[in-house]
Amino acid sequence: MITGGAGFIGSNLAHSLAQCPEVSEIRVVDDLSTGTRSNLTGLGVHFREGSVLDADLLDRAFRDVDTIVHLAALPSVPRSVKAPLASHHANATGTLSVLEAARRAGDVHVIAASSSSVYGSNPELPKHERLRPSPMSPYAASKLAAEAYLGAYHHSYGLPVLPFRFFNVYGPRQSTGSAYAAVVPAWISAALSEQSVVVHGDGTQTRDFTYVGTVCRVLTQAALHRVVTPDPVNLAHGTHTSLRTLLTELERATGTTLRRRHTAPRTGDVQHSRADPARLRALFPGIEATPLDEGLRRTIAWFADHSNEFTPREPR
């Protein structure tokens, strides 16, 4: 079961799981607020449209499942600053709703997505999981609350859980058209349409960009091998790429010179983010990260091939 399975990471995971002979059935719950049914085209998934806040829907959807990969969320730091209650309801209360439904369903393995944003203003690099969280946005706070609920349900009810902290995931099927678009798809869209790219700040910010294919390999292995730990796990491999370097890589990959338009830094954005991958490597020693240049080439090729059919969506 993938909650948020019609979204960016969820749909990529569905495509990955569909290639696994060990997986007999894939179910998806998604309210289509940021995802789209077209992301699942060609897959024989059992799709239910609706919210993870709907307990009756979850009880029906979770019946007889082995693993839930909980990806449903309302993403974006800027969106959460604008609408903090919506972010909390979707991310914190939504996770609690999923955990309660999983508990009612029985011994169901719950893998869930948190975010590197929980580290917030803590300046220490790289970010290891023992660091004190210091959220700088309602989105980060909602993800930290979700993590806490996962740990609480493991210790209180014995629920097998695995929380991952995602770091700047990018790749095919990622939205490009909203005001909240992540930097990689937004800049690829600008490059392919010969528009200027918007840089918030001076471009010296650094991020641990993680290709969605790498994320899906980890999630697939976690599900198939029923990996359980109540402690959060960084899902990134410790890269340290500035936005200026990202622009250079995009120019190299597209063969274009990108015009820059600088704006003020965004409220809630952290200056530097880099994962300590030690815990991830201990749990998943056979999985290597996709290099940034290769991931960008694959992502650019996908967006170029789907330019006519890919319709970016504004979030509700």
Rank of each mutant, 00 (worst) to 15 (best):
I2F: 09
T3S: 15
G4S: 04
G5I: 00
A6C: 04
A6M: 10
S11T: 00
L13V: 12
L13R: 13
L13Y: 13
H15A: 11
H15L: 06
L17A: 06
A18M: 07
P21W: 06
E22V: 00
E22T: 01
E22P: 01
V23T: 01
I26Y: 08
D30K: 03
G35A: 09
R37W: 13
S38T: 14
G42V: 12
G42K: 11
L43F: 03
L43T: 02
H46A: 11
F47R: 10
G50F: 12
V52R: 12
V52S: 14
A61P: 13
A61V: 06
R63I: 04
D64E: 15
D66V: 12
T67V: 15
A72N: 13
A73M: 09
L74D: 11
P78G: 10
S80E: 11
S87W: 05
H88P: 00
N91K: 14
N91P: 13
T95K: 13
L99C: 06
L99V: 05
L99R: 04
A102S: 12
R103D: 10
I111T: 08
A112R: 10
V118E: 06
G120V: 06
S121N: 01
P123N: 01
L125F: 05
H128M: 07
E129K: 10
R130Q: 09
S134P: 00
M136H: 06
S137M: 13
S137A: 14
S142R: 14
L144G: 05
A146Y: 09
G151Q: 14
A152P: 00
Y153A: 10
Y153M: 03
Y157M: 08
G158S: 06
F164D: 06
R165C: 03
N168R: 15
P172F: 03
P172C: 07
P172Y: 02
P172W: 01
S175C: 13
T176V: 06
G177Y: 05
Y180M: 14
A182L: 11
P185S: 02
I188S: 02
S189R: 14
L192Y: 08
E194M: 02
Q205F: 00
T206V: 12
R207H: 05
F209V: 11
V212D: 10
G213W: 05
V215N: 10
V215C: 11
C216F: 09
V218S: 03
A222K: 03
H225C: 12
V228K: 02
V233I: 14
N234C: 10
L235R: 02
L235Q: 03
A236Q: 11
T239Y: 05
H240L: 12
T241L: 03
T241G: 00
S242Q: 11
L243A: 06
E251N: 03
R252D: 12
R259N: 13
R260W: 15
R260S: 14
H262P: 07
T263E: 15
A264I: 09
P265F: 07
R266F: 07
T267E: 15
T267G: 09
D269W: 14
D269I: 05
R274T: 04
D276T: 09
P277W: 09
L283Q: 08
P285G: 05
P285C: 09
A289F: 01
A289Q: 10
R298G: 04
T299G: 01
A301E: 07
A301H: 02
W302C: 04
W302D: 02
A304G: 06
H306F: 01
R313C: 10
R313L: 14
